[in-house]
Simulated assay, not measured.
Amino acid sequence: MLKQQIQADMKSAMKAGDKDRLAVIRLIMAAIKQREVDERIELDDAQVLAVLDKMVKQRRDSIDQYTQAGRDDLANGERAEVEIIQTYLPAQLTESEIAACIDEAVETTGAAAMSDMGKVMGVLRPKIQGRADMGAVSALVKQRLGG
């Protein structure tokens, strides 16, 4: 399981004295633990991926804000965290792979208008969670449905 891999990597980072990596892995474990406590469940790999995906999205938003404010030092710190978090995410999909997934989801759901976007995203999310920026995918779906 992904959670055990993250815990093993935390021990390795401790032994190696890699403080930056250890700090990020601790943030990941805290986010996972928080969700498990809040929902009183043990997260499976798909749910852990959703947590990691959310963490990457938050950091990308922070990078944008720091860059606009001229705080490149803080933006670089966030970029380093994104790189570490992404090591636990599956390989990112290419644009053509994302387009193929969208086409398949539109065909499966029979979507023809913007009102069908929820159906399309419902089919897409489990397939590409953690493998693509869901905000960008949403924009592509809107474009495909004529929005």
Rank of each mutant, 00 (worst) to 15 (best):
I6E: 05
Q7F: 15
D9S: 11
K11V: 12
S12D: 08
A13D: 02
M14W: 03
D18I: 05
L22A: 15
I25Y: 14
A30R: 11
R35C: 11
V37W: 06
E39Y: 15
R40M: 14
R40I: 09
E42T: 09
L43G: 05
L43H: 01
L43P: 06
D44E: 12
L49T: 14
D53P: 03
M55N: 01
R60S: 07
R60P: 01
R60W: 07
I63M: 04
I63K: 00
D64C: 12
Y66D: 04
T67W: 09
A69T: 08
D73T: 06
D73I: 13
L74F: 06
A75V: 06
G77I: 10
E78W: 01
A80Q: 15
E83W: 02
I85E: 05
I85W: 02
T87N: 12
L93S: 06
T94D: 07
T94M: 01
E95F: 02
S96E: 15
E97A: 06
E97S: 03
I98S: 02
A99I: 10
A99M: 13
A100P: 06
I102V: 14
E104T: 07
A105E: 02
A105M: 07
T109D: 05
G118M: 07
K119G: 04
K119M: 11
V120D: 00
M121R: 04
G122R: 09
G122W: 03
G122Y: 00
G122I: 09
P126R: 05
I128C: 02
V137D: 01
V141L: 08
G146C: 11
